[in-house]
C-alpha cells in the first residue's frame, strides 16, 4: 500500500495504491491525517481507483477520514473507487453517506 497526494489551491487529492486491510490501514490513517493537517484543504478527495483489495478495515478508514474532515471543517469525496472498493462501500450503504464521484 502506498499513498501519494497533490494539492491544488483549496483541493487536495490523496491516491491510495494497493491493498487496504487491517494491517496497513493504520499507516494509511496516519499518512492521510498528516496530509489533511498539513494541507488544510477546503475539499479533500480520496482517490480509490488503484485499490486492488479492500475489506471492512477500508470502510473504517474512510469513515474515520470523514470524521477527521468534519473536525477540521473540509468536505470528503471518494473519487473513482475501483470495483473492489465500490463493492465494500455499497454493502455498507456508505455510498449514501459519503459523496462518491466517478469518471473524469
Amino acid at each position: 500500500m502506498e499513498i501519494r497526494s497533490e494539492k491544488n489551491e483549496g483541493k487536495t487529492v490523496a491516491y491510495i495504491y494497493g491493498e487496504i486491510d487491517h494491517h496497513n490501514a493504520r499507516l494509511a490513517r496516519e499518512k492521510l491525517d498528516k496530509i489533511i493537517e498539513h494541507d488544510r484543504p477546503i475539499s479533500f478527495y480520496l482517490d480509490l481507483s488503484s485499490v486492488s483489495f479492500c475489506d471492512s478495515s477500508g470502510l473504517g478508514l474512510v469513515m474515520g477520514r470523514l470524521r477527521k474532515c468534519n473536525t477540521v471543517g473540509c468536505t470528503l469525496t471518494v473519487q473513482n473507487p475501483s470495483g473492489a472498493a465500490m463493492k465494500i462501500l455499497e454493502i455498507a450503504g456508505m455510498d449514501r453517506i459519503i459523496r462518491i464521484e466517478k469518471g473524469e
Binding site: 490501514a25 475489506d55 471492512s56 478495515s57 470502510l59 473504517g60 469513515m63 474515520g64 454493502i91 455498507a92
Partner: peptide, 14 residues
C-alpha cells in the same frame, strides 16, 4: 477506538 465499522460479519454473509 480502533476505527472499526462493525461490518465484517455483514460482508462475510453477503
Amino acid at each position: 477506538d480502533g476505527e472499526r465499522s462493525g461490518m465484517g460479519f455483514t460482508v462475510m454473509k453477503s
